[in-house]
Design a protein around this nucleic acid. Structure first.
Length: 472
RNA sequence: GGUCCCAUCGUCUAGCGGCCUAGGACGCUGGCCUCUCACGCCGGAGACACGGGUUCGAUUCCCGUUGGGACCA
């Protein structure tokens, strides 16, 4: 119905491990920007670091993107399939005298760097090979970009405004390693140019690379794209989010029982806001998202709020969908054997009564277990507190009465309890809690009538009688 | 060490010179509801890093200090 705008953005992860929270945020903001502007979202795999890149990681990233619902219009492209393109551009720069061969070894560079620092000079490349007129035999050179050493390079960032860098601070960066592969800073520039990227939206950690990249665009004869550098996501100790801060990979959130819409909503609100609104559907995010409302300050990832959103989205979710997800978890845990699935309609009823107090799918799965297994283990403390000698006759009487209930539903069960309570002059809790322990093994569960209904007549009576019999 | 960025409750944030005795959300907390736990509802504690300017007036603009972060090495 709408034609595509000329906005073209990309998410360009390195396949060196998991898809982590920071990557998701970058991907999400690019995706939202593309969708908001009817643009094109491109996925590019930056795998020139062949020692660390794996196909397994690529799969993890693609799966993660799909789980989150971040679909791409073009790609995935892989840099390793584009090596000839980089080489051609390197040759051009070399031919035009905008780049030169550098024969310095890492050891030499390191030594000179230390020397410079010891002498109080800035540790930048000394341009030793810049004046070389002939190759050094026996060495394979790297290629360095001949950067400007006067004036300034100004990054006009959509989030931070104009950021000025003194060109003399920038040294001649390596654009092709001695193994013939392009470096990150060079490959991104060539890729973004050849893929017609209009807006580079990426993490703050790349801001310092940007002036060099701008010079590369200029040397290559291209107009640089617009830049937007997103603030970092930090851990609770305000350092860059990493493994020691807990779950950082998308796969971990899947395993923890999160819904994708919860994670997306949470991450969208990290560094971005829209008035006082906290809950956003995907469409609302697309409609409201602009780079102007992205903040500049880094933000700390807060597990509690993410859980709160997950709880919210679990309440909103379709019971059939939840049932399927919880069923999968139960199978994964071996609680349910293959081919022994419960009746789906019944299971949906179970899911419905568990939803309200489940913050994650894992919690829901755990709460479902007593309803599925044949025998339950009673919690010792709960047993001591509620299954006392005086309640044994009550339980037996209740079980007897329940046997006559037909149909075995909430509305039919409730009067039985009310009658018993009135007859004995006790509080409802006096009987409800022991029954809860008898049926679920613990002191926490949905409303007791709902539990009984879903548990079913046979199991309910069996467990109440067993509990009564077990009281000494 | 150099360069760059950033700075409102514990956390995410609203605020784009007067509407602010600073609003919302998570978390924490008091109460209500109640068969447990939750949910829900009502209430509470809780922040403009500091110092200078600019201005009739600064959370908001400028400078510095401090603090944090990132990158390069």
């Amino acid at each position: 119905m709408t034609t595509k705008s000329n906005v073209r953005v990309r998410f360009a992860p390195s396949p060196t491990g998991a898809l982590h929270i920071g990557g998701v945020r970058t991907a999400l903001f690019n995706w939202l920007y593309a969708r908001h502007n009817n643009g094109t979202f491109i996925l590019r795999i930056e795998d020139t670091d062949q020692t660390r890149s794996t196909d397994e990681s690529i799969k993890i990233i693609l799966d993660g993107m799909k789980w989150l619902g971040l679909d791409w219009n073009e790609g995935p492209f892989r840099q390793t399939e584009r090596l000839d393109i980089y080489r051609a551009h390197i040759d051009t720069l070399l031919k035009e005298g905008r780049a030169y061969y550098c024969y310095c070894t890492p050891e030499e560079l390191d030594a000179r760097r230390k020397e410079a620092m010891a002498a109080g000079r800035p540790p930048k490349y000394d341009r030793k090979c810049r004046s070389l007129t002939a190759p050094i035999e026996g060495r394979t050179p790297a290629v360095r970009f001949l950067s400007a050493d006067e004036g300034q390079t100004i990054v006009r960032d959509l989030i931070r405004g104009a950021v000025t860098f003194e060109n003399q601070q920038l040294d001649d960066l390596i654009i092709q390693r001695s193994d013939g592969l392009p470096t990150y800073n060079f490959a991104v520039v060539v890729d973004d140019v050849t893929m017609d990227i209009t807006h580079v939206i990426r993490g703050d950690d790349h801001l310092n690379n940007t002036p060099r990249q701008i010079q590369l665009y200029q040397a290559l004869g291209f107009e640089p794209p617009k830049f937007a550098h997103l603030p970092m996501i930090l851990g609770s100790d305000k350092t860059k989010l990493s493994k020691r801060h807990g779950a950082t990979a998308v796969t971990e959130y899947i395993d923890l029982g999160y819904l994708p819409e919860a994670l997306v909503n949470y991450i969208a609100r990290l560094g971005w806001s829209h008035g006082d609104q906290e809950i956003f559907s995907l469409q609302e995010l697309i409609d409201a998202f602009t780079l102007e409302s992205v903040g500049k300050a880094p933000s700390v990832f807060n597990q509690e709020k993410c859980v709160w959103l997950n709880h919210h989205y679990i309440q909103q979710a379709d019971p059939g969908r939840l049932a399927g997800l919880v069923l999968d978890l139960l199978k994964k845990d071996g609680v349910l054997k293959q081919g022994s699935e419960p009746d789906l309609e019944w299971f949906k009823k179970l899911v419905k009564i568990l939803t309200e107090r489940s913050h994650t799918l894992v919690e829901m799965k755990n709460a479902a277990i007593p309803f599925l297994v044949d025998d339950i283990q009673l919690d010792e403390k709960a047993k001591t507190k509620h299954l006392t000698p005086d309640v044994a006759p009550l339980l037996i009487e209740l079980a007897t009465k329940l046997k006559t209930v037909e149909p075995f539903t909430h509305t039919e069960i409730e009067p039985i309890f009310n009658a018993l309570v009135a007859e004995k002059g006790i509080k409802l809790g006096k009987i409800a809690q022991p029954v809860r322990v008898a049926l679920t093994g613990g002191t926490v569960s949905p409303g007791i009538y709902e539990v009984i209904e879903v548990m079913g007549k046979e199991k309910t009576i069996k467990r109440i009688e067993a509990a009564a019999a077990g009281i000494k």
